[in-house]
Amino acid sequence: MIECKNIVKTYRSGEIDTQVLKNISFKINDNEFVAIMGPSGSGKSTLMHIIGCLDTPTSGEYLLDGQDASKLSADELADVRRQKIGFVFQAFNLLPRATVLRNVSLPLVYAAVAKEEREERAKETLRASAFPEGFWHHYSNQLSGGMMQRVAIARALVNNPALILADEPTGNLDTKTGAVVLATFQLLHQEQGRTIVLITHEPYVAEHAERIIHIRDGEIVSDGVNRNRRLINNDH
């Protein structure tokens, strides 16, 4: 469970302080599929970094499963990320000189999982996301954008995290491949009961979630159930 209480994030560049997040408060329960939507520069990524324990708020409290993240050290935050959170980034952020399998199993490397088990789990995850086996040993920079994002999703899932954070996961993809990615999230939510936080500036993408939190200029303008939810037919 995620709880943000009066979160403020201020960036200081030179003499000028910019308040990127102004008094953000909300709760996300387990097994929710939430989209955080807002225009460019509204502070979505900043918020995701706080939710993802990559950053701490300037003031306010962020609780992940009841634990105050601002009280944790950098290494403890790394532990939390490794155990509880899977990230999917807009820019994929795969290791270019590593194979698909290596990329997917990378989080397990830092969890000190033995090589055999690691590969087994990475293969399982790739199989589950129907990633074509012929590409498992390709270097990640030899893949198409859509495939890269699927590798990134598999990497986010390999640790079996309860919370998946995706920052503009479809931003670099065409509509069709974007749809496949969104379908994957819906499936993960419906069938595996994971909590998914999807960050986007596109209403169309946000409409795949159950609930939409709308932010603008660092403030929540609306937060509520998505009434016209788009469901993608998941029978592949």
Partner: peptide
């Protein structure tokens, strides 16, 4: 970037 990614997925200092 690679260092950032590694940290994001759980690498410690």
């Amino acid at each position: 970037r690679e260092i950032g990614l590694r940290k994001a997925i759980g690498a410690k200092r």
